[in-house]
Each structure stands twice: as C-alpha cells, then as structure tokens.
Amino acid sequence: MRGILATISPVYLWMVLFMVVPLGLILLISFLQRGVYGDVKFHFTLENYRALADPLYVQVFLTSVGIALGTTVSCLLLGYPFAYFVAGTEKKHHRLLLVLIIIPFWTNSLVRTYAWILLLRTEGLINTVLLQLGWIQEPLQMLYSYGAIFLGMTYTLFPFMILPLYSIIEKLDKSLLEASADLGATPLQTFLQVTLPLTLPGIVAGSLLVFIPSLGYFFIPDLMGGGKHMIIGNLIKNQFLASRNWPFGSAISIILILLTLLVVLAYLKLLGGDKDDMGVM
C-alpha cells in the first residue's frame, strides 16, 4: 500500500499543483467582479457569463471556430495524401520522410512565421521574383488576409495531422485492398469503402490535434493577419492585460475549456468510446 502511494503520489501532486489549483482559481475568479482598478472583488456574480451571450462574443467564438475548422480541413486535405504516400514508400524511407516533416519544427514557430512574412510581403521575395519575370505587373497583396492566416496556421499545425494519419495508414492491412480489387471494386470504391473507414480513427485524431490548438493560436492571426481579427485567444489576452478584467477573461477561458471538452467527448463517442486507442501511434 505504502509503495503504491509513494509511486503515484508525485503524479497526483503534480496534477493538483499545476492543474487542479490553477483551474480552480480560474473557475473561482470567473464568478467574481472586476474592481475599478483591475483588481478582483470578492462578490459573487453570474454577470461574466451573461455578458458572453452578447451576439458580439458569440461572433468572436464563431470566427475562431471557423478559422480552426478551415485550418483542420486544409491540414487534412494536404496531410492525407502525404501520409498515404509516405506509408506507401519503401520502409527504409519512412523515417527520413517523417524527419523531413519534423526538422523545420526545431526552429521556433515565431521565427518561422516571420520567415513567411518576408516571403509574402508586398516587397517580399515572391513578389520580387514574379515582377522580375514579368508574370505580374502589380505586387500581389498576400499578407494580412484570411488566406495568409490559413497558410500560417496550416503550416504550423501540419505535423500534428501527419503523424497520427501516418501511423494508422501504415498499419492498414494491404491484403484487404487486394481483396477489394479482386472482388471487382474500382480504386475509388476501395478507397471510399475500405481505406477511408479503416483510417477514420487517424483522421479524427489528427483533426482533433489540429483543431484544439488552432482555437487558441493568436500569434499567427496577429502577425500574418495583421491583427485585424478578434479571435478567442486575443479576447482572453485583452481581458487580462489592456482591460484588466480578470473575471471576464476567466469566464471566457472556462467556456473555451468546456468547448474543447465537448469536442473530445464527441470524438470518444464517434469511436465507440475506445479510449485505449486514441488512434495515435
């Protein structure tokens, strides 16, 4: 008994100190009132949650979910063929191809985002080359748009889609595909009726791993979108800094956590509650 306690107590301690206590604090503050100078008044209120029902904030949530969904779809559309291709190459090449995906991520994501800015801006590399070649007459306005946000987000979160997809496609039993072909199915039918259902757990896991962080990423919309859109991450940041409204910021954070939990629950439901196989590795 004592042995077990000694082994698991560090984990509990860690969870209590760094998860339960901070989350409890956020929950507590979300029910308190903002003081005039940005302190917190110990006065119970539901006002912070009521204020969130304002169509303005609903719109902020919708924009954020929209950007996150768009990012997930573009990661999936690019990632699936890539993962399929990697899994189809000779085994000895797998590791190399995956390492090539990972290597750029050894560099800080902020630095990589600035690199994109250098490429995309009006007098950046791409415009300069295209102008020199005479393919365009006026520089293209690529930066500070929704397109730039999606590009930056997709680029940053790409590996989170690739890795679970690869691991599940690689495990795919090739004889099933052969059997499908032998029984007269066209390649498209085989893909839709055999490959896709079998790799669904990887698709869902990858989508989840991309969707959830992209809800909170605010530095890419700030840098590549020119800070022209208000998304949940910015909204929370503003409450804690410029507006010194910690209670409201905490309430938004709690709603965001609930939203994320909902997505995870939907995922578990979709896969029949098989918690052991999160589809990852």
């Binding site: 859109h229 409204n245 409201f248």
Partner: peptide
C-alpha cells in the same frame, strides 16, 4: 475606470 469595459467591447466589435 468602469468605462474600460465599454472601450474593450467597442474594440472587440471593431476588430470583429
């Protein structure tokens, strides 16, 4: 003071 909250709402709306 209290009006900070109004400024923040206008700002959110403006960016939105």
């Amino acid at each position: 003071g209290e009006t900070t909250v109004v400024y923040d709402k206008i700002w959110t709306d403006f960016k939105q």
